[in-house]
Design a protein around this nucleic acid. Structure first.
Lengths: 131, 131
DNA sequence: ATATTTGTTATATAAACAATATAACAAATA
DNA sequence: TATTTGTTATATTGTTTATATAACAAATAT
């Protein structure tokens, strides 16, 4: 698995798992329809407790990114299934706000922040073939 | 004071205070050189404990946004004093990443996310006179 | 059909974090 | 000189994070 846990981080383990799975999907390393590893398997892989991974999966379900089929497994939802709601758009804006505000106050220009955004995009997007 | 606390939020109170002060500075409601209210005064205003506000101020100092003069007060640093370091730029990028990734996975296009960024900018920036 | 794997639920424990409550100190300010 | 300031210390409470076991019942594999 591509997930790397930093035990010393101030970000909770379950949140690290959630973020890295989201990044993995964004990068195209995991596609809609794919099944996530079982909570027990992933937990064993990462050397953490089953419940920690379980919490992460439920967070992903709450965000609308996966579907958990009880006693079967967790599946990544298709982009069609997870139609972007106005509430989700608003949530993204809410998440964006403190980051941008801090950047501005620290003296970053709009151009610098937009440039970083583009860098993040390039890092996340599926690498176009041959480019 | 312009700070509004949501006690039910999953964001800690001290973090809410930190963010809203940053947004206040970004908006120009508070300028470099201005003194923040004393921890006791702001705490009384918000109806929270002195230590909660104190924790927020120290978070702001760690971020390089204010200077705390022991036994005197907390002052907002000037943009020159808080020269944007490469580490700070990298931190902003690190903060940006999970937000952008989540947006993408939820189906937001690059254009949608950039549009939201611009909205946040417009909301934060000092309103240009007469415009 | 049986055994294994799955997510779910329950209980318990420990550590860290968030928030409050008091109190006292010593320097800065009024 | 009295008040205000950030600092430090101690204590308590509740929540969150993370782990550890265990059992259940449905889904899947053999």
């Amino acid at each position: 698995m591509f997930i790397q846990i930093e035990p010393q981080s101030d970000i909770p383990i379950y949140e690290q798992v959630t973020r890295q799975i989201i990044e993995g999907i964004a990068r195209g390393e995991m596609k809609p329809g794919d099944t996530l590893p079982s909570v027990r398997n992933l937990a064993a892989d990462l050397g953490v407790n089953m419940h920690t991974v379980n919490k992460s999966y439920h967070e992903l379900e709450e965000k609308g990114i996966i579907t958990i089929r009880a006693k079967s497994g967790a599946i990544i939802r298709s982009t069609e299934e997870r139609a972007l709601t106005p509430e989700q758009l608003q949530q993204i804006e809410k998440n964006l706000k403190p980051v941008v505000a801090e950047g501005m106050v620290l003296g970053a220009t709009a151009e610098q922040i937009e440039y970083m955004m583009k860098k993040v995009f390039a890092d996340l997007q599926i690498p176009a073939e041959g480019v």
